[in-house]
């Protein structure tokens, strides 16, 4: 187990810590982005191969077996791309809702927003 994985896990925990302790919507959204970056890093690392080549077949590679023995695993990269797309749409959505909440309540503090929303309900 290489220390890189440990660093990735630390980054993951930093994001989770932020998500659980912060109240400001912007900071919460940044925490989500940090968690996402950690998971994507881990996925890329899962397909990493020391001194591997890019998994793109070019005219230099005549034999598929030789190519497959040296190229890094492209599958996690496909997963990362998908997860980035999901993360992007989620981030845009969360930012949009936060802006709208700011427009209504004039604050980014989630606990204040919830308090105001509860009072409005009465």
């Amino acid at each position: 187990m290489s220390p890189v994985y440990l660093l990735v896990f630390v980054l993951f925990l930093v994001g989770v810590f932020g998500l659980l302790t912060r109240r400001n919507l912007v900071k919460l959204i940044i925490s989500v982005a940090v968690i996402e970056a950690a998971v994507n890093l881990f996925l890329v690392l899962a397909g990493y191969r020391r001194e591997g080549i890019a998994p793109i077949m070019t005219e230099q590679h005549h034999r598929a077996e030789e190519f497959a023995a040296r190229a890094v695993d492209p599958f996690p990269q496909a997963m990362v791309l998908t997860s980035i797309v999901i993360g992007l749409s989620l981030l845009a959505l969360l930012v949009g809702i936060s802006l709208r909440l700011y427009h209504i309540y004039g604050t980014y503090d989630l606990s204040e927003i919830r308090k105001a929303a509860r009072e409005e309900d009465r």
Binding site: S89, A92, V95, G96, L99, R100, H103
Partner: peptide, 18 residues
């Protein structure tokens, strides 16, 4: 999609009724 998202957010940011 991406252009729409950014345009929408920039409209929201300016304030006023989105």
């Amino acid at each position: 999609g991406i252009f729409l998202a950014v345009l929408f957010l920039s409209v929201l940011r300016v304030g006023g009724d989105p």
